[in-house]
Write a protein that binds this DNA or RNA. Structure first.
Lengths: 331, 331
DNA sequence: AACATTCATGAAAGCGCTTACATTTTTATC
DNA sequence: GATAAAAATGTAAGCGCTTTCATGAATGTT
């Protein structure tokens, strides 16, 4: 592997000059630039990115922490990040936090030890204060969470609005007895979505019926279990809004096991518009969460704020939107 | 950030000694080791991994190339890799190849420029020879493809066997008119699965009916289109084996649009046992592809062969297995 | 006690770049 | 053509580690 020194020798110039033509940040005469370029080509020179990083104190890498590397949701997000960052010549180091505080912190330390220039985080378990302190150590951009004092580092979906839209859609289709399967309420997004649900109800002058609200776990099993609970309670309902698509699937399966037809007997609303929701039967009516685009924006944030690429525009707030499919019917 | 120099100063020893206690590869007396450890702790010292990489010529990073970062299949695989590698203190750089030759090559060059110690590749578009040459430049482990001459670098699923199992299962349930929706036949895995299908048929003394074989694209749309073609051809069939789950979903949707009940009117067999297959209606009977485990094994290969961790065992050949659910019925 | 071994440590030369500063060359100005 | 200013290039000091080789201390041997 050729080094910058051999290039400089061959081109008959100094190291510094070669470095200059590589980085294009200082004037080099047309003649010498061509000599250098020619030497590079002849030697098939590739700069050693590690040496560059050490000398420039910039690793050109950004860490990304997600709850789980698998899972449709994060796939889209990582895909958006990878795409955007690679076109900028940066690379993504992936780590999983498993929604567990110790594990999230450990993953973050790992990424820091890797000298990432910035961290893109989708974390649940860690506190706001931790993130604020972390940001002092290394720049951070946070997806799907608003941290007071760090607002300009957050790429968010209006979860409350999504929760509202979901229940509003049900209400607009004349449902009045609407059950709700929430996510784990210690997660802010779960709470926000639930808030939206309540707002929609109250807008229609309906009280929140505690007996129709059950907490799930954002997974299929939890959705099924929650549905079981709802069905057992004997409280009648015509529709159930779920805080994510996986739980909606669980709920649908459970309902089917009880010989209920969807949507004839009960309508089901999801949230996230995960790929899978197009494959369920019936196809799930849900709220779109633009995860890929939000990932991309997190990457844009990094390009702009860390790599000083002021060309790229960043959008921080995203709006969910209703996706009508077949699991909800008009009453 | 403290450097090794400051640690050595504080501990009253030389740089070399500090380096020795860090790496544990040379004898250091208990006394000095403790002094150094203490100094490290006091200074909250973290070695600079970039400097380590430059000096040791080992980046501790491994590149992983998948077709798409999203997609359930690759999520599992990346998850397996990430897990295994992180416990070994290495990191994963992710890139997407989009099943396109130019794009795959570009991604590989990108990973190489990042000085990855090894590359884990899931590629379709690139030739065997390219991979053989590539392996001379940088160690490569290949998932889901057998390269002649590079067999010991391959982590494979017996796709032919999977194809066989799928059709055999259908035959065992007394289906005799079995349609087949293949993947794009320029992909080896698609070809292999198809071969398995043929073997099962011939084992039962059945001829391959060309009119019942149609080529799909491994995506939902292609599955739907293929089913449309099959239905239009007016050739009767009682079951359809699909080369992956996504196409099976497309086929099921198409069948449903034609008022056919699954599995009463037509049985559908998938392949891959992607997460989604548990959410479809009816739940898809399919062939399990242990993608997560195979990813993990690729990582183990790297640990063993590249990082010389002879503790870890590597398994290179994986067997698919039948997952019985609800989309296939006994005749 | 003299010598050979072994063990622990230190000195210093890289690894392949970037960049501040110094020097030389070119261009502009009168 | 002399001088100043600007532009191009070179010199060399890092960046924070690893590792070879040399040195000195401790131990063993007779």
């Amino acid at each position: 592997m050729a080094t910058i020194y051999q290039v400089s020798e061959r081109a008959g110039v100094s190291l510094a000059t070669v470095s200059r033509v590589m980085n294009g940040n200082a004037k080099v005469s047309e003649t010498t630039r061509n000599k250098v370029l020619a030497a590079m080509a002849e030697l098939n020179y590739r700069p050693n990115s590690i040496a560059q990083s050490l000398a420039s104190n910039c690793s050109n890498s950004v860490g990304m922490l997600v709850s789980e590397v698998h899972g449709p949701f994060f796939g889209e997000m990582m895909s958006g990040v990878e795409n955007e960052l690679r076109t900028a010549g940066k690379h993504v180091i992936i780590a999983a936090g498993h929604s567990d505080e110790a594990s999230e912190k450990e993953a973050i330390e790992f990424l820091i030890s890797r000298k990432c220039d910035a961290l893109i985080l989708h974390v649940d378990a860690v506190t706001d204060q931790y993130l604020i302190d972390l940001n002092e150590r290394t720049p951070v951009v946070i997806i799907n969470r608003t941290i007071p004092g760090l607002e300009d580092h957050c790429i968010c979906l209006n979860n409350e609005l999504g929760g509202y839209q979901a229940t509003k859609a049900l209400l607009d289709m004349n449902h009045r007895q609407i059950a709700y399967i929430s996510g784990p309420l210690w997660k802010h997004d779960a709470r926000e979505r639930f808030e939206g649900h309540k707002r929609a109800l109250s807008e229609f002058g309906l009280p929140l019926d505690e007996a129709l609200c059950v907490q799930g776990d954002f997974h299929e099993e939890g959705g099924a279990r929650a549905m079981e609970t709802l069905l057992a309670s004997a409280k009648p309902f015509t529709a159930v809004a779920c805080a994510n698509d996986e739980m909606a699937c669980g709920a649908m399966n459970c309902a089917r096991d009880h010989k209920l037809d969807i949507p004839a007997d009960v309508s089901v609303m999801g949230f996230d518009n995960v790929i899978m929701s197009r494959y369920t039967f019936p196809h799930l009516t849900t709220i779109d969460y633009p995860a890929g685009e939000m990932g991309r924006m997190a990457a844009c944030w990094v390009r702009r704020q860390i790599y000083q690429d002021k060309q790229v525009k960043v959008r921080q707030l995203f709006e969910p939107s209703l996706v009508l499919r077949d699991s909800v019917r008009q009453l």
